[in-house]
């Protein structure tokens, strides 16, 4: 099994290691490159890690990429896990709050279903 730079990048993002994310991007990992599971770093990042999200987005990570099985965007997942600061940052970087996943749910619907009041209140203003 050959590990690519993108595999390393997604692992660093998923474990919340912002320093490693930064280093891998500087050494040539593609910010929107897919790992061997067909996902980008922003899709699999530790959703609570604001510094990882910031690093990826500043390097041009696409915030509207969809999960190939469920159609969820990173904003859906930030909302599902309840991290309002990450959701806010994604929207600052042009994440579209009106995209729907394969179940026809928008991020705000997920917030309501998951009982994430703070995130729900924030998305209502968007």
């Amino acid at each position: 099994l050959i590990m690519t730079l993108e595999d390393d990048l997604t692992t660093a993002a998923a474990t919340g290691n912002a320093a490693a994310v930064e280093y891998l991007l500087e050494t040539g990992a593609h910010v929107n490159g897919l790992n061997r599971f067909g996902r980008t770093a922003l899709q699999v990042m530790m959703m609570g890690s604001l510094s990882v999200a910031q690093t990826l987005l500043k390097h041009g990570a696409d915030p509207n990429v969809r999960d190939r099985s469920t159609g969820a965007t990173p904003l859906h997942d930030a909302v599902r896990t309840g991290f309002v600061d990450t959701a806010r940052l994604l929207i600052e970087f042009q994440a579209d709050p009106n995209l729907r996943d394969n179940k026809n749910l928008r991020p705000i619907d997920i917030a309501k279903l998951g009982g994430h009041e703070e995130v729900f209140a924030f998305l209502e203003t968007e």
């Binding site: 595999d7 997604t10 692992t11 993002a13 998923a14 474990t15 790992n35 599971f37 996902r39 899709q43 699999v44 999960d67 099985s69 469920t70 969820a72 859906h76 997942d77 599902r80 896990t81 996943d101 179940k103 997920i110």
Partner: peptide, 26 residues
């Protein structure tokens, strides 16, 4: 469950972040 990234490993095996494709939860 569909793996989306490798998040750990060692002599004992491998750890993946994965998604329950039905609930959408990680």
């Amino acid at each position: 469950y569909e793996p989306v990234a490798e998040i750990g490993g060692g002599a004992y095996g491998t750890v993946y972040k994965a998604r329950n494709t039905e609930s959408g939860q990680f």
